[in-house]
Design a protein around this nucleic acid. Structure first.
Lengths: 236, 236
DNA sequence: TAGTGGTCTAGACCACTTT
DNA sequence: AAGTGGTCTAGACCACTAT
């Protein structure tokens, strides 16, 4: 393994383990150069790449610090929260609050294109990044299209992963809004008082019809959505 | 300007102008080092950053080549708020709060890839839908790339429309978050008390570099972002 | 004033691809 | 064999921050 890569791994583990929490100072270029017996330019590269990845913040004259957790995810891809958290070298875990069959309310029935009163599968899961809740996922699933939904362990596999496995997605719609969370949501997100939250409403289709409807709620202070676009002709 | 940055600009122009089309070989590290009278490490940095940005592909032992055009279609178009309001058959109007030249703060300078203290153009505009504020647009513009920015009437044409006319956009990045508006923003949005707002931070590039940085704030109660995504066939 | 990150140099060796 | 990119060194000067 390249030397700069070894240093990156060392720093990754400090950050991912929580030994260095947010804003904690990271070893300086000179310190790393001495510690790993490399030139400053090599130590520098490790730090620079971590900064490019958003894991640390570098401040001229001051030093390098562990970046605050503020997730940024591609808003164009259909996202899997677990993969995203792990891609930032953070710990991921989930807690299942609700997982059961219910009778569809009029609202849910309309969104899933079913008749009101018909059974639907309902789940509520909190997703954690380094033990901090970053998303509450409230989801309704069409039981006719995903028969095995209730018998999965959603602390091991995300609903998104399972649904992708059993039902190829053909279409999705999103709505993004800013809301004040309900007391129930505050509890699930472990917010002591309400703060603005980013809400994504998503419906997903397969060839057979609406598969699932999800309401994803993220605390504004812990999450943002990002995207990057390139246009066709005269690229730069 | 830093030397590696000068070299990047030179390469940008070759690629954006079409002088070097897709797959065209890019000058090697050694060639650039000689041409610009810099060390190889400095020439290398310019090429490496272009590769990180996805503009060129580097191939060990072979060389560096202009990257093929990305066909990344987004379900979120670059939006023009005036067109959107009018497409809903509602009245549109705008009010200009600020339109002037300022010295770039460190933050603004970084986002526009300029030096701090350099002049930038700054505008703040509230956009109304049926006389209700739906967006505050705070915008900073690179004055070198858009010389006529300050002399437009932004109650007739939106900054977005004007910028599209004078500078073909090649790239954009978005960040979407939920925030609590500042008192100043509440005033501009005519909110009697703060409510969660949807914020879109957008940077836009042309071939010559960062053209503009916009912060768009929408009251949560009056706005949501929607998108529809089809898989398997490219659709907006 | 000492420490930090930002930039840059002029070399070096290596693995790889092309000719 | 010649050229390319990938890695690395041991210095250097600068601007900035903290004390």
């Amino acid at each position: 393994m390249a030397k700069f890569s070894t240093i990156k791994q060392h720093l990754y583990s400090k950050i991912a383990s929580g030994e260095w929490p947010e804003h904690h100072p990271v070893s300086s270029e000179n310190a790393l150069a001495q510690q790993f017996k490399v030139s400053r330019m090599t130590a520098r590269r490790a730090l620079q790449e971590l900064a490019d990845e958003g894991l640390v913040i570098r401040s001229k004259g001051s030093g390098t610090y562990v970046a605050p957790i503020k997730s940024q995810t591609s808003f164009m891809a259909i996202r899997n929260i677990a993969d995203e958290v792990r891609s930032r070298n953070h710990d991921y875990r989930a807690h299942v609050h609700v997982l059961r069959k219910e009778a569809a309310t009029a609202h849910v029935a309309e969104l899933l294109q079913l008749d009101a009163g018909k059974p639907v599968y309902h789940s509520v899961i909190t997703h954690f990044e380094n033990d901090l809740p970053v998303q509450v996922e409230e989801r309704y699933v069409n039981p006719e299209l995903v028969k095995g939904y209730l018998s999965q362990n959603y602390e091991e596999i995300t609903p998104h992963e399972y649904l992708c496995e059993v039902s190829p997605l053909t279409e999705a719609s999103h709505e993004i809004e800013a809301i004040t969370p309900s007391p129930q949501l505050c509890q699930w997100l472990k917010l002591s008082k309400p703060e603005p939250c980013l809400r994504i409403n998503r419906r997903t289709w397969s060839a057979a019809g609406v598969v699932t409807f999800a309401v994803l709620t993220h605390p504004g202070s812990r999450f943002s959505l990002g995207g990057h676009l390139h246009f066709g002709s005269a690229r730069a």
